[in-house]
Design a protein around this nucleic acid. Structure first.
Length: 430
RNA sequence: UCCCCGAUAGCUCAAUUGGCAGAGCGGGUGGCUGUUAACCACUAGGUUGUAGGUUCGAGUCCUACUCGGGGAGCCA
């Protein structure tokens, strides 16, 4: 007996096949039972007629609780009433495991309840669609860099110190001492770029900040390219190319998940190069014109990002931030030392910053100065300073937050649904 | 850390001015040969988050706490 998955069912019209999955829904009419069977690749209606199966199988179709696991045997039939174009005329039905009463019903639930049942919530079509889009985003980003000849390098998750002194870190025991969970792979990425030229780090990142917003997780994933001998403008081009590639691949490969999420893809189809590029100073002017209370030197908050991104119809690069509000490793603008060669990408539709990056400081002396200015202990960073002692070169890179990118592309409000098991300030279960 | 909102059946919510705690879904029983969150009938299901207080009487008013949601700051 041929075991097939729902996504391939159209190739088996008229044939008898087996499906293995779970009961997503059950309806009935007289002596017909309709089972919606979900197998992870799709959902299809299986029709069980009282006279077409053994009495035990019909009894099972009548009673089988939601989310029980089953194996169904039947003939694949084209049917215009089916959302997938086909249904299964069942000849046999076998129970794998009977489910206890399933906590998630077809009606509405609150976010707290769903998050407590995240391990089951993932079975819903909406969550499955988000996981597929997330996987497509990750793959597109990797493919983009792989095809450009970048080498994938993993940065350590356990680190001896902060990468950027400002943010708080998770401390963990490390034998007799302690370690921290990484807040960025970037510094290690810089070391790898000096060895391999162009690299990218793709891994988890941890921030112990007590952030409670729709854009924050305590554990999230970043893809961080780092390029030796690259300077500022071509780094922005690279980020632009990566976003276009991600959006293109998701539109091509995730039509069904996007439809399931009722995503208006017309805004995604507009995501083509070139993206608008404005400087921080221009951004401040725009915000002042629109009446926001902001001064040159202030960082851009969520409200400011939303106003800026709504002024353009595609992702927006903001460049040349004041050095004072950026990390210690940012290179100063040679034309204006108040500024850093830093770039952020703001996603449209109010999703905020999804990329942050720029050119790195390559002068040992200047880096030492900035470290002192930020009050950072240079001891644990001596290895990083070595990169400037032994053949320092201009180099640049950026980091893309996967969850924010997925939230934007999928058109959903909160990043917590874009990762299978989100970690938030007050949520560590399941 | 700060601001706002909330907690009533397994879930989502209702309960008028402080006056008998209810509905839908889910569970159970039965019905229907094409259902699409199917539908129809019946049925079980409650220490109203916790601890105090006001009152003849508290789901409702007051205080504290706990938990959750939304937002700010910080950042991707």
């Amino acid at each position: 007996m041929k075991w097939v998955t729902v996504d391939r069912i159209s190739g088996y019209e008229g044939e008898v096949v087996q499906l293995k999955g779970w009961i997503a829904n059950r309806r009935s009419s007289g002596k017909v039972r309709f089972l919606l069977v979900r197998d992870g690749h799709g959902t299809i209606q299986c029709v069980v007629g009282a006279h077409d199966v053994a009495p035990e199988a019909f009894e099972l179709a009548d009673k089988v609780p939601y989310e029980s696991s089953i194996v169904v045997t039947g003939t694949v039939k084209r049917d215009p009433r089916s959302p997938v174009g086909f249904e299964l005329a069942v000849s046999d039905l076998q129970l794998v495991s009977e489910a206890q009463p399933y906590p998630i019903s077809k009606k509405d639930h609150g976010v707290g309840f769903l998050m407590d049942h995240r391990h089951l919530w993932l079975r819903s079509s909406r969550q499955a669609a988000l996981m597929k889009i997330r996987a497509a985003v990750s793959k597109a980003a990797r493919d983009y860099f792989d095809e450009l000849g970048f080498t994938a390098v993993e940065a350590p998750i356990l680190t001896p110190t902060a990468c950027e002194g400002t943010t708080s870190l998770f401390q963990v025991g490390y034998f007799e001492g302690s370690a921290y969970l990484t807040q960025s792979g970037q510094l290690y990425g810089e070391a790898a770029a000096m060895a391999l030229g162009t690299i990218y780090v793709f891994g988890p990142t941890f921030r112990a900040e007590k952030s409670k917003t729709r854009r924050h997780l305590t554990e999230f994933w970043m893809i961080e390219p780092e390029m030796a001998f690259w300077e500022f403008p071509e780094t922005i081009d690279l980020a632009e190319g990566m976003i276009c590639r991600i959006v293109r691949d998701v539109l091509e490969r995730c039509a069904e998940p996007l439809r399931a999420l009722e995503r208006d893809v017309s805004t995604l189809e507009k995501v083509t190069a070139p993206f608008p590029r404005i400087t921080y100073s221009e951004a401040i002017d725009i915000l002042k014109e629109r009446g926001l209370p902001i001064q040159w030197g202030d960082d851009l908050g969520g409200d400011e990002e939303t106003v800026l991104s709504e002024a353009f119809d595609r992702p927006l690069f903001v460049t040349h931030y004041p050095a004072a509000i950026k990390a210690f490793y940012m290179k100063r603008d040679p034309n204006d030392p108040r500024l850093a060669l830093a770039v952020d990408l703001l996603a449209p539709e109010g999703h905020g910053e999804i990329i942050g990056g720029g050119q790195r400081e390559d002068s040992l002396e200047k880096l030492e100065e900035t470290l002192a200015l930020h009050g950072l202990d240079r001891g644990p960073l001596e290895w990083y300073l070595d990169l400037r002692r032994y053949g320092s070169v201009p180099h640049a890179g950026f980091g893309l937050g996967i969850e924010r990118c997925v939230a934007w592309i999928a058109g959903i409000h909160h990043v917590r649904e874009t990762i299978a098991f989100p970690r938030l300030m007050d949520r560590l279960y399941p």
